[in-house]
Design a protein around this nucleic acid. Sequence first.
DNA 1: CCGAATCCAACTCGATACTG
DNA 2: CAGTATCGAGTTGGATTCGG
Lengths: 143, 143
Amino acid sequence: MSVGHTAVTTPPAPGDPVISCDTPQDECGVRDVLDRLGDKWSVYVVVELAAGVRRFKELQRAVPGGISQRMLTLTVRRLERDGLVHRTVHPTIPPQVEYELTETGHSLTHLVKALADWSIAHRPAFTASRAAWDAAHPDSEIR
Amino acid sequence: MSVGHTAVTTPPAPGDPVISCDTPQDECGVRDVLDRLGDKWSVYVVVELAAGVRRFKELQRAVPGGISQRMLTLTVRRLERDGLVHRTVHPTIPPQVEYELTETGHSLTHLVKALADWSIAHRPAFTASRAAWDAAHPDSEIR
DNA sequence: CCGAATCCAACTCGATACTG
DNA sequence: CAGTATCGAGTTGGATTCGG
C-alpha cells in the first residue's frame, strides 16, 4: 500500500492477464467478436448449434426467450456472413434448411463455455451487488 | 438417417464443450455478462482498469474511439452496480474520483483476455468470410 | 417450412450545455 | 475535475403480413 493516493484494496494487477491494446486506436480486436456475440440472440444460436445440426424451426424452438422469425433469420445470416455458421438448403417441398457450426464456429463454443462458466460462478455476486446498489440509489436512471 | 425427422448429418459435438442450458427457459446465465460486456464501451474500461487504478479523465483519454463524458459515466456506473468496479470519491477541490476493478472485476479480465485472443486469432477468417459474403450478396440489408 | 418486407416502439449513443 | 441535464439521430428488436 504505502505512499500516495492509491491505497487500493486489491493490488493493481496481481496475476491478471495483460490485454494489450498496443496501438491506442486499435480496439484490441474484441470489437469483432462482441459485435456479434453482444446482440440479443447470437450466443443462444451458437449454444444450440454446438449440440448439432439444426433446422430453422428447431432452432427457433430451442432458443430460450422466444425469438421471432425475423430475428432468427437476421441472426443466422450474420453468423453465416462471419463464417461461424454454415447454411445448407435442400430444395425440397416443403423447403428444408439446415444450420451447423463451421470450424471457426466450433472453436467459438469454447469461448462461450468460458463465458457461461464465469457468468454462473459470479451470478450470486452480480445479483447481490445490483440489489445493494439499487437499494442505495432508489431513483436512479441507471439500469 | 432412419426414421423420424431428426436425422443429423454431423456428429453432434466432437470434442466441443457442452454448454448446459438445462432448464429450457434458463438463459445459461450468459445474459448477465453479455448485457454488460455487449455494450460499446464496458470492455475497454475493464481493459484499462486491468492495468491499474484510473481517474475519470484518465479513463476517458485511455479508451479508444473517444468516449463522451456521458457514456463514460453511464458505463462506470453500470459496472459499479454490477460489482465489477469500485469507485472512490476524494472530497477535494478539484474533485478526484478513482476507479478500480473489484475482485470480481479482476476475475473478469481473464475472460476478456480469452475474448481478445480468440478475436485476434480468427480475425483474418472473419474478414475473409465477410468479404466473400458481401461479394456474393451485393445488395443485402445484412451487416 | 423458410423466409422477405413493412411498420413501429424502445433503447443506445453522441453532442452540447451547464453545475459544484 | 467530475459529473448532470437535455435533446436528437440512429439502431435494434418485435409484430404482422405476405410469398415461394
